[in-house]
């Protein structure tokens, strides 16, 4: 899609542009080519991530999880046009919040992940950069390029393991409170179904050779 706008983020695998159309703001997410990969891998990744992202955003919405609506997709240049959410990533605001507010947001993060898991999907990259908080304290989840359907206990366990790792590396001084409130939200939403996933999360961590 050829749309003019300002780059608002350049991530590891995408360029996010904010564009104005029909008197509203939208996000154009494009996955550029990576010259260091062979073309066969590069194009298959760009195609599969773009398609997974669209599907993930829509399935998550159908499960009652707030995500930006997808308006258009272009598989020639691997771009997606979606709603612009005027929020801030939890990663950026976490250290400015009181522990109760932060805990409550983490609790909601846990419930969101649980709703996805109950619907048979995993997010694939559940970091605090991908949870947006809007001014009315509503939580949105974005970045579904690594999401997968038909999730097994193993895949869900990996999702929780990734949350734990993200808290360790980005919120080391608050990780205990943040993790326990996230898990609390996850368990409250899923009930008994949460148990095997939590056990798997611990097993995955132990599985690496040394830790």
């Amino acid at each position: 899609m050829r749309l003019e706008g300002a780059h608002i983020a350049i991530g590891a695998e995408s360029i996010i542009t904010k564009v104005a159309l029909w008197d509203r703001s939208f996000v154009l997410k494009t996955r550029p080519s990576k010259p260091y990969l062979i073309p066969a891998i590069d194009s298959s990744l760009r195609a599969s991530r773009t398609s997974r992202e669209c599907k993930g955003l829509n399935v998550a919405r159908s499960l009652g999880v707030p995500t930006p609506a997808v308006h258009a997709i272009d598989l020639n240049d691997y771009s997606i046009l979606m709603d612009y959410i005027p929020g801030t990533p939890l990663k950026q605001v976490a250290s400015t919040l009181g522990s109760t507010t932060l805990g409550n947001l983490c609790y909601r993060f846990g419930r969101i992940i649980a709703k996805l898991h109950r619907g048979g999907m995993v997010h694939g990259d559940p970091t605090t950069s991908n949870l947006l908080i809007t001014s009315n304290e509503k939580t949105w989840i974005i970045d579904f390029g690594l999401s997968e359907m038909n999730a097994t206990v193993e895949m869900k366990g990996v999702d929780l393991h990734l949350i734990k790792r993200a808290l360790e590396t980005s919120h080391w001084d608050m990780q205990e409170n943040m993790l326990s409130r996230t898990i609390e939200g996850y368990v409250d939403e899923l009930g008994k179904e949460a148990e095997p996933v939590l056990e798997r999360m611990d097993a995955i961590r132990e599985r690496g050779r040394y830790h």
């Binding site: 891998i41 298959s44 990744l45 990259d125 690594l146 990734l162 790792r165």
Partner: peptide, 10 residues
């Protein structure tokens, strides 16, 4: 084609 498996940063 071989399975390409990236999960978050793992």
């Amino acid at each position: 084609t071989l399975p390409y498996s990236v999960k978050g940063m793992d």
